[in-house]
Design a protein around this nucleic acid. Sequence first.
DNA 1: CTTAATTTTCGACTATGGTCGACTTCTAAG
DNA 2: CTTAGAAGTCGACCATAGTCGAAAATTAAG
Lengths: 201, 201
Amino acid sequence: MSVREEKKQKTKQAILDAAIALFSTNGFENTSIEELAKSAGVGKGTVYGYFQTKKEILYAFCEYELEQIHKELANRADPDAPILEQVLTIYMTEFNHVTQNKEFGRIFMRQTVFPNESDRQDHLEIEDKYFQLLFPILQKAQDRGELRRNIELLHITGHFYGLYILIMSSWYTGRIPTEEVSSALELIFQQALEGLQPHPD
Amino acid sequence: MSVREEKKQKTKQAILDAAIALFSTNGFENTSIEELAKSAGVGKGTVYGYFQTKKEILYAFCEYELEQIHKELANRADPDAPILEQVLTIYMTEFNHVTQNKEFGRIFMRQTVFPNESDRQDHLEIEDKYFQLLFPILQKAQDRGELRRNIELLHITGHFYGLYILIMSSWYTGRIPTEEVSSALELIFQQALEGLQPHPD
DNA sequence: CTTAATTTTCGACTATGGTCGACTTCTAAG
DNA sequence: CTTAGAAGTCGACCATAGTCGAAAATTAAG
């Protein structure tokens, strides 16, 4: 690697490290770019050379977290466990990361679930990663007869995802305390599997 | 009403009218408070006498819209129609309002689904209005045997709400075009009623 | 009507996200 | 080694959200 590239990487990392430290301590809105730049040992303009907006610094961190989550899941996954268990593991792994930094999580979710026109592309990429993770799991469950065959995988994925967003929302609004998230998620996923209407018997 | 109170109300309305006009034409972010104040024929400080932040002006509009929606629903509602039809009507009514101003809708959804600590209270009030709207409808459906009796109404409400958020998200990200929202919503609600797993038969 | 107290209005001011273009450092061709 | 030009750095500067206290308008008591 050339001297230039090496420096670049170091600078970017310094900015990110400073950002994580400052955002975590003082919150996103209470950290000014000037402060952040000073802490990273660079000028304000340099920060904007690496990130187009203040929020983008946050996303860089979130994406890194997301990668960690995906790696963690690759280890944990048991493709033959009941579908409920697997889906729960996936979303609880994500949730556990979010609890470690509520502020990052909120801004990330807001942006991901209701993106600006300009951020659509990033959003779609992130969602695709999810689908790639979930599809084979759901496929197998469908093959085992745990899921109906006449529903598209995309719709099943969406169904679980929608309910996960709901639970996260309930957590962010304080309706569900941290320790109850797991059981709430399990309950509503179970409900989704069984259906809301009585079974014809 | 005293002269003072009358003036106050007029001023507030003038600010709101100007805001709706400008936000709709130029978007929320492209409208400065100074511009808005000028358009409303008041000083900048006066705007902040009526609204604490720029976003609060938006919420005032959103709350007004929400009231309109609730009024509209009160007329439309047919408490004896199938539950799927009723729930669809409710969410499609809301969606139709949102399409009339995408920008308001996004910010409103972001704030409602993932609120700041400081806005929690407002959020809960808005959600309560929903529950009050949905509860009697679900109750009746449960009585008619259209919904399982061993699920709490709150969970059923949440389930539908989570799926609505999902569809809205898909719309905001461009995954679902406007004209397909209705059928997508119907499909996923149907799926929720029937359950994702095969029926034991 | 006068006047003191209260409420409302206003725009200069502050703080900060983001831009700009001058300056510095690195690269690579000759 | 030189040197032209590319890549990266920087902080003064700009625009705008939000604050503040002085000025104006309204009220109510005498």
